[in-house]
């Protein structure tokens, strides 16, 4: 908000009142919800990972892959059933930040554009949100590794 000296006192007073009545986001409440739901999703992920270590032939290191695949599968399923979006509305970042949110964005975009066909609808729209994540992740990783290799050896 630029400080405009040409603003009359009445206008400034009005702006002050208007700001007070702006729809406030319940930041604290949202953060608590995000913490609890996000924590639960991660704890569930930990359970899945531990399950793969104890009951299958995976080590801590190799269990990451099946765990992620399982979580993505479940998130996609819940998205298809319509459950994930309802829970996402409540949980905010708690459902968007875990990898399940990534899967949900792809699945819901894919399902939503079903009517436009599989080539033009489903496949072309699947990466609506995911594209930014992948592009920035890859580009960032590229520069980070180059910097690391150039200045710090490996």
């Amino acid at each position: 908000m630029a400080k405009d000296s040409k603003v009359s006192p009445t206008q400034r007073a009005y702006q002050k009142i208007a700001r007070k009545h702006e729809a406030k986001r319940p930041v604290m409440k949202n953060c608590i919800k995000a913490f609890l739901i996000g924590g639960l999703v991660c704890t569930f992920g930990q359970l899945v990972q531990t399950g793969y270590i104890y009951y299958f032939d995976f080590t801590e290191k190799t269990a990451g892959d099946p765990t992620v695949a399982t979580l993505i599968f479940l998130a996609t399923l819940l998205t298809g059933l319509g459950v994930y979006d309802r829970f996402g509305h409540f949980a905010g970042a708690g459902s968007a930040v875990p990898v399940t949110g990534f899967a949900n964005s792809m699945a819901s975009a894919a399902i939503e554009h079903r009517t436009e066909g599989y080539v033009l609808g489903v496949s072309s729209n699947m990466f609506k949100l995911a594209a930014a994540v992948i592009v920035f992740g890859v580009v960032a990783a590229f520069f980070i590794v180059i910097i690391k290799m150039t200045f710090f050896g490996l």
């Binding site: 930041v27 913490f35 924590g39 704890t43 970042a93 708690g94 930040v97 875990p98």
Partner: peptide, 26 residues
């Protein structure tokens, strides 16, 4: 639970206080 929760809270703060879009946040 705790670390996962904290990372999600950071995301929530970026959304609510930073007023970023979900794409920007992620």
């Amino acid at each position: 639970f705790i670390v996962g929760g904290i990372i999600c809270v950071i995301g929530q703060v970026l959304l609510d206080v930073g007023k970023l879009t979900p794409a920007h946040t992620l």
